[in-house]
């Protein structure tokens, strides 16, 4: 009888625990690379603070009468805008992995099939949490005060991260479909700028023309900003939070299967 010499270290498939470990290792890789990539530090930290300072001190007086009042209105909106802008990182880094051959190396290893993608998304979630904390902390230095409670802050983090995890799939799709980095940037900008500016994050909806108002009111950016305002400043929480979760679910249901389908086709 012949015996096949099978290396004993190689199991025939990956256990769930190993998949999680693989994902954690690949998330670590995305985070540790930040220190060699100064642009990412700027993206993650300086850009959100810059937006906060610029909008608060240039527009605050004109829109809300005082910078303090404006901060209460704009900080939740800037949190949302920053989250959406930051998803571009996922698209860029994923695209880079695909075009530079890093994904091929990873896929030739005996690791979980989904951990490269999951690792990217997990790392992005950590980065997003950092940006939210940074903006909140810096906002407080500028005079922002949480009017609700600790639970409002926790709820803000929770809702923002759930939304991130869902909208990340749009970025995954763009990163997978685009043939090169510059195409990712063109595509993401042409989607992110109109989406975030046609909302009430910087100016109240009532100041806009009627035809625009009907879109602004249903824009997920408006709704998410309203939910965060309610959780931090007080007011009706349930409606905007449920609507935000509805939007997040809709985005997930549409974009996750599309992204997975294109991902499988590409790799």
């Amino acid at each position: 009888m012949t015996t096949l010499s099978v290396p004993s270290a190689v199991a025939s498939r990956v256990s769930p625990l190993t998949s999680l470990k693989n994902t954690a290792t690949l998330a670590w890789r995305s985070l540790v690379s930040i220190k060699h990539n100064p642009f990412e530090i700027i993206d993650l930290s300086i850009q959100p603070l810059m937006f906060l300072l610029l909008f608060t001190y240039t527009l605050g007086g004109a829109i809300a009468g005082s910078t303090d009042k404006y901060l209460a209105f704009a900080l939740p909106g800037i949190l949302v805008q920053n989250t959406i802008f930051a998803t571009m990182n996922i698209a860029l880094l994923l695209n880079n992995d695909l075009t530079k051959g890093v994904f091929d190396r990873l896929r030739s290893l005996p690791i979980s099939r989904w951990s490269p993608l999951a690792g990217r998304i997990l790392a992005d979630t950590v980065k997003q949490a950092w940006s939210v904390a940074l903006l909140l902390g810096f906002g407080m230095i500028l005079g922002f005060r949480v009017q609700t409670s600790f639970w409002g802050v926790l709820g803000t983090f929770g809702l923002m991260l759930v939304f991130c995890l869902c909208i990340a799939w749009v970025a995954v799709l763009v990163g997978v479909v685009a043939s090169a980095e510059d195409k990712v940037q063109i595509f993401m900008f042409s989607f992110m700028f109109p989406l975030t500016f046609t909302s009430n994050i910087f100016a109240p909806t009532s100041s806009m023309p009627g035809w625009l108002q009907s879109w602004v009111k249903i824009n997920p950016v408006t709704i998410l900003a309203d939910a965060v305002r309610a959780m931090l400043n007080g007011g009706d929480v349930a409606t905007p939070v449920l609507q935000s979760l509805g939007w997040a679910a809709a985005i997930l249901v549409i974009f996750a299967p599309l992204a997975v389908w294109r991902f499988k086709r590409r790799v």
Binding site: V6, A9, V10, S12, R29, S33, K100, S108, P110
Partner: peptide, 26 residues
């Protein structure tokens, strides 16, 4: 038996590459 194959091979080439933003040791 792709997974078992992956456990035995090393791939180096034009299209299987390292992460440029990490150090050699990382």
């Amino acid at each position: 038996q792709a997974h078992s194959v992956r456990g035995q091979i090393g791939l180096t080439g034009q299209y299987a590459s390292v992460d440029e933003s990490l150090t050699g040791v990382e």
